[in-house]
Structures are given as structure tokens and as C-alpha cells.
Design a binder for these strands. Sequence first.
DNA 1: AATGAATGAGGTTTCATTCAT
DNA 2: AATGAATGAAACCTCATTCAT
Lengths: 192, 192, 192, 192
Amino acid sequence: MADTVIHTERPLRADARRNRERILESARAVFAEYGANAQIDDVARQAGVGVGTVYRHFETKEALLVELLREKFRLFAARAREALEQHGEPFAVLEDLLRRNAQTAASDAAVQHALAGAGENIWMQAEAEQQELVAVTGLLIARARRAGTIRQDVEANDIAMLMCGLCSTMGGKPGFDWRRHLDLVIDMLRAR
Amino acid sequence: MADTVIHTERPLRADARRNRERILESARAVFAEYGANAQIDDVARQAGVGVGTVYRHFETKEALLVELLREKFRLFAARAREALEQHGEPFAVLEDLLRRNAQTAASDAAVQHALAGAGENIWMQAEAEQQELVAVTGLLIARARRAGTIRQDVEANDIAMLMCGLCSTMGGKPGFDWRRHLDLVIDMLRAR
Amino acid sequence: MADTVIHTERPLRADARRNRERILESARAVFAEYGANAQIDDVARQAGVGVGTVYRHFETKEALLVELLREKFRLFAARAREALEQHGEPFAVLEDLLRRNAQTAASDAAVQHALAGAGENIWMQAEAEQQELVAVTGLLIARARRAGTIRQDVEANDIAMLMCGLCSTMGGKPGFDWRRHLDLVIDMLRAR
Amino acid sequence: MADTVIHTERPLRADARRNRERILESARAVFAEYGANAQIDDVARQAGVGVGTVYRHFETKEALLVELLREKFRLFAARAREALEQHGEPFAVLEDLLRRNAQTAASDAAVQHALAGAGENIWMQAEAEQQELVAVTGLLIARARRAGTIRQDVEANDIAMLMCGLCSTMGGKPGFDWRRHLDLVIDMLRAR
DNA sequence: AATGAATGAGGTTTCATTCAT
DNA sequence: AATGAATGAAACCTCATTCAT
């Protein structure tokens, strides 16, 4: 009851934190279903809260989208760090990582799409998280390069772009089969 | 190949055809500037016609987007056909084609973006044109394969997906340099 | 070829007259189907002419509606005049007239409706024709009154209003059966 | 008869209810002034609320019209129920009711008009309320019939149609005087 | 005289965001 | 802190009417 605490940043009451989680979850679901033109009202309804609550947690719709993108980057970065701990052949480890990430993105294709279609604005606001991911990916590449199992001229951003491109083809675009394509891309990355 | 096309559709009065052209031109400009949420009213104003005229030519905003996508595919297909006529080394011809297409897409990044973000719907409505492009690309690949200068396992749809992916990274996404990346991709396509 | 005739009012070339007829016919059909919010374009298409032609004959959509109302009044007036020639019992003649008019209106319910819903404006522009109808109806009533077979206090405008009201109930309004109701109304008009 | 109505629908916040009332009031005024082609924006402005609020309460312009019709039926039904409580001569009670209703309709002529011109759709959506009115009217008629002061063959729907017809003549149609006409109609309903 | 393409004011509706409760 | 009603700018689209062909 004596919670006259001064919130410098975000101690966030337990229920508030729970709401935040629920909102993000719903946002994923709703954007996945309706693309970037899903409505905040839908997100709120799905989360079982009022619109006002959504806005308390995310100042704008864009901010919500940004957070989704950040989360994705954080997840991928976390996986990349785990990969760093592994002791297998470096390229194989990287390959496994990419396959798992692609799979995750595919199960989320519509959100991915919404994010791809989203203005550069959104990407810029997630730059820190993106850099972090690129940095860790860089370490994985360096290891593989030392092992001589990856093309010498590949950089972390190339992987990022290839994966980003792969995701952009995941919708339901006719003739496109991302699994096949990923096989090819991975093989292309391999040292000759 | 002589273009004795039979117009089953109405031949379109001269001024109407002119308007149609102007509308498409403006649409390109306006979508390029404002992305997929450009307004039809802006397209009309920019074209110097009334909104009604835009709607007479394109029943829906989506229809306009579809036509833009179709045009792009037609342009790329035309270039691909030209490339078929050339007598240089097949892979070099293909490389040149890809570079020119990438350049075109880049000068049009926002439209590209709008199209990428667009629902699968739009892509499906342009499927015929896409198939045509893929078909001609297939011929170019076949030649290069016979010459032994391209990876044996590359298919036309892989090229499509790589280019489509490349385009999706063209916005202003931080850290992404498509020219560099295209160099890499082309080199990856080359036979070892 | 020497048709430098001066058109004081409407000599109207034969084909023009034919067009005018076709337009009115189509207007009846189209207003009957879509009510007052039928579009001029529909009328034109149905008539097999361009919109411009419709406008050459009828300055505005309202003018077209007015003409439809006028025609109806003219038809009813003509029938009333014919009734005057008949030698049966005056009230019976009137009754027969009303029944036939109601039948006509019913087969035309939607137009009737459109006309009823239309502003007073329209009725005022058809006033002359309406007066003519009322006048002839007055003669029929007078005869019946002399014969003592109609209520003494009924006037022509009462008949008009009753019929107008009857028509207004003809749509598909639930529970309303205009034939039953007409029987009652006619019996009410009869002298006790 | 105590109004312990159970609200299955949400009880509606106090301010929301107030707004709803205001919107209906304005709708009456605005439809009265401009007929069926009044604009929702005008209704909103007149009510001092945003358009969005109008749409929150009534999904569609049509829904607003329907509610107006329902209200009218409810009002008339309420009056009819009051009339049932009265102990005067049954026909006189009915007559008084009709006169008051006609007066109300006249003061509302344009709305009445809009409703008359409206598609059957609208009437069908108000069928429940209409039936209720017809039912109560039926009781009034039954009493008068027992008293022998009304024509034996008149039914509730006849009264409805006569009144509905009367209303349809109320605009500014030339030559039509509804008060005169109502006198006649009432006299016609009286038992001979 | 006829055609139908063009016009553009105006209509309905949506939805991100604010704010009273 | 949460709620959801309210807001209103802006989006899309329609259609009576005009006008170039």
C-alpha cells in the first residue's frame, strides 16, 4: 500500500507487466491475421483490455510494431548467443541457426510482412537491437571463416539481408517455396 | 511476334488512353513518395484529372497497385527477352540484366516497398505477368547452365526470390547496402 | 435535308422522338427496380443510349421523374374521360376506374414509391396534369352524387388522397394488403 | 406493467445514453428539414457530437432511420395503450387518438416522407413495433365494435393503412388538405 | 444529335488517438 | 491504472452533370 515509490523508469506493477505481455501477444496474433492494417481496437479486444490500456503501454500503433520487431531481433540475438556456446562445426551451427530462425519467421509470416511493409522509421527505431544481432552474427561468421567453411567475403549484414529477403517472400506469393530456396542460399554461403 | 493483337476489350478513346498513362505515371510517383498509404486523391491531383477518372480506369486502389506490379513485371520480362537476343557470355548477360533491374527497383524503392507490403492478393492478380518473367528468365538460366557458368542447381524462381528479397532491403534500413549485397549474390550464383 | 425549320417548341426528329420514348420506358423499368436512387447511367444503358442523350431530353434527373408522374396523371385522366363516356351506374363506373388505376399503380409499385418519396417539388411541377385529373374526377363524382350512390361529402381531392395513400402502402410493407383495403375504401365511399 | 425490463444489452453509460438521445433528436430535426437525403454529418453537428459517435450508436444511416420509425410506432402504441385506459365512448376515444397522431405526423411531415419513401427494408426492421401498435389498435377497434359505433368490417390494418396514406399526402402536395380529409376518413369509419 | 469520358463536390464510413468516468 | 465512449480528420468511393469528340 505504501507504493509512493518514484518510478525513474519502469518498476511496473505486476498486473501492468502482465497486461503488457498480453498486449504484445495479442498484437502478434492480430497483426499476423490482418497485416499492418489491423486495428488497435482488435489488439485491445483480443488482449481483453480497453484501448486506453494499450495506449498506456505503447504510445502509438507504430511503437507497438517497433516493439514486435525489437522482440524478434532480441529472440534471434539470444539464439545466436546460444549458438556461440555450441561446439559443433561453426558453419553447421550457423546453418542450424538460420533454419530455426526461418522457421520461426515463417510461422509468423504475416507479422513479418507487416514489418517489411512498414516504413524505414520502424526499422530505425529498432536499430540497437538489430546491431546487437548483427554483432553476434559477426562472431559466428568469424569462427566459420577461421574454420574455412564459409565463403570468405560474407559479412553479417549479408546474412541479415538474405534472411530479410527470404522472409519477404514468405507470404503466399505464387511459385515461391522458401524451404527450397533456403537450402540453396545456405549452400551458396558455404565455402567452395 | 508481329503485334497483331486483337483487342477484345474496347480500343479506348485517344484521350482516355492518355489519361490512363498519366494516372499510372502519377501513381508511381505518389506511391513512391507516400508508400502504400498514398491517397487516390493525390494520384488524381498529380495526374491533373478528377478522382472519378481514376476510378473509371481502376476500380479500386488495389487495382492500381496491381497494375503497377504488372507493369514492373512486364518491363523486366521485356528486358529479359532483349537479353536473350544478345550474344555475350550467358552469365554475363544475366548479370547485366540483374544489375539493371536492381537499379530500376532502387530508383523506385518506395513503390517496391508498397508492393512488398501488399497482400498476397495483389501478387496473385499479377501472377500471369510474373510467370511470363519467370519463364523467360528460365531460358537465360538454361543458356548459362549449358555454358557451365552458372550454378547448376539455380532455378528461375530462385533468381526471382533473391531479387525480390534484395528489393525488400532497399528502403532505408540501417546497415543495408544493396549494391554490395548484389555483388555478393551474383558471385554466389556463378559456377564455382 | 432542308430541315432548317425553326423549332418553336418540339417538332422533334423521328429518331429523337423514338429515343425519348425509349428513355421514358427505361426510366420506368429502372426506377421500378432500384427506386428513386436508380442512376441516370442505368437508365441510359437500359435505353441503349449515352447519358448525354438522356440529358438532351430531360434536363435533370428530377425532370425525368416529373415526366413519369405527369404521364401517370395523363393516363389516369384519359381513363377518367373514357369513364365519362360510359353509361353504367355512375358509382359503379367510378369503382371500376379506381380498381383499374390501383392495379396499374401496383404493377408499378416501386416507381410509385419513388414518386411518393420525392419532394413536393416534383408534385408541384406536375400540378397542371394533376388538376386535370382532379377536374375530370370531379365530373364523375358529380354524376354519382346526382345519382345518390356516393357519399354526398366526398370531393375529387378526397379520392385523390385515398388513392395516393393506397399507393403508398403498396411496397412490401408487412401486414398490408391493398386489395382488401381497396374494397373497404370503395365501400366507404358508397352512399349509405 | 411495471417496467422491470431486463437489459440483456449493455446498460449504456450515462453519458452515452445522453448522446444517443441527442442524436435521435437531431436526426428527427435534420431528416425533417432535408428529407431522406439528410447527411449524417449534419445530424452529428446538430447533436454536438462527432460523426464517429453517431456511427458508434447507429451502424448505418439506415439504422438511424429505422430507429426513428420504431420510435414513432412506440409513441403511437403508447398513446393507444393510454387510450385503452380511458372510459369515454370507444369510437370517440379512437377518433381522438387518430387526430392526435395525425397532428404529430404532420409536425414531422418530412421525416414521415423520408420514411414513406424508404425501402421496405426499413419497414421490415420495424415490424415488431408495428405489430405491437396494430395489436393495441385492434383492442380499441374491438371495443368500438362491441359498442356498435365503428364499421363492423374495419380492421386494425385498415386504420394503419389509412393513417399511413394520410401521412403520405402531408408534404406540400398541391390541393391536399389533410385535416379536411381526416374528418372525412373518420366519418367513414363510423358505423352508419 | 449522340456518345461516353471526365469531373469533383459530396457522401458514408473508418480508425488512431484522446479523455471523461 | 483501466476502461471504452468520443473525436474528427481523412480515406475511399459515387453519381448527377458537363463537355470534348
